[in-house]
Nucleic acid binder design. Structure first.
Lengths: 143, 143
DNA sequence: CATATTAACGCAATAATATTGCATTTGCAA
DNA sequence: TTGCAAATGCAATATTATTGCGTTAATATG
């Protein structure tokens, strides 16, 4: 690895005209370490040492989401979850409706589908994103 | 139409051991009339005459969702939306990120995909549902 | 038709998630 | 090093959803 993760994160922020702050680096570090969608609450639980106001976290998430550094996903949990965007590694999720466990699904059948959906649509002029999530029961909960 | 919608709704409730009440019939009537996912707030706005407590609505939605009469969907609006389940007419949605307009997408490429996802999964034993939603801009907002 | 049983409902309180306004601090460009 | 805009913290509040409990009403049964 030529650049440390921290340097890469700093580059990412600068590339989008966002200031590089300890809070934002900490946020990116947590999302990079725990490779699954996290709620604001879970992110704060993983915050090292210094407290951080929820407001600051929500605002950071908003800024990073707008810059497409972070992706906001909705897994029927009654709250939003956030994960790092990994360019070229677009993926979706499999969620256990019992315990909430999340498994990432590699690959995505959606890109081709997007075009096909747009062709059939009567009222839309463009499609930019899609969510494709699966819900079931994990082996642990089934047992 | 041999049976009125109201009679069909009553049958649906009875078939699931749920009591048939004016509130629930009103709820089903609204969902049947406005054929797109509605938030709890939107449903209450369409309530005719008599007031109904939000609690009652949420509890009715919960009961009907558990009975698979109603489906709960998440369209990145910061709240849940509800729509009638129409057996054999499984569909998904196209959402305008500007104005919130929703277009139903006929057909579903997901059923076959469910099996394929389950095969590739390492930790899940079953998949029961999926959400497949598209986000873009409608012609009106693009203009 | 009367009535008992239990589900459904309404009200009040509260939880969980998220946002806004404003004063203060800090990153960073000049 | 200094000034300015962006970022942060605190307090207040909005929005969405849930829980407890006493009351009402749907329906099964006699």
């Amino acid at each position: 690895m030529r650049k440390s993760k921290k340097e890469k994160h700093a580059d990412l922020l600068r590339a989008h005209g966002l200031k590089m702050t300890p809070k934002r680096l900490q946020l990116l570090s947590i999302l990079a370490r725990i490779k699954r969608p996290l709620s604001a609450h879970e992110i704060l639980k993983n915050w090292s040492q210094d407290g951080t106001d929820v407001v600051t976290l929500y605002r950071a998430l908003e800024a990073l989401t707008a810059a497409s550094i972070v992706r906001r996903v909705n897994l029927q949990h009654g709250h939003a979850d956030y994960e790092l965007v990994t360019p070229g590694k677009h993926h979706h999720h499999l969620v256990c409706t019992d315990c909430g466990t999340i498994e990432n699904i590699k690959g995505c059948p959606g890109d081709r589908t997007e075009k096909s959906v747009l062709r059939k649509s009567t009222r839309f002029s463009s499609i930019r994103e899609h969510s494709f999530e699966f819900f079931g029961t994990c082996r642990a909960c089934a047992a």
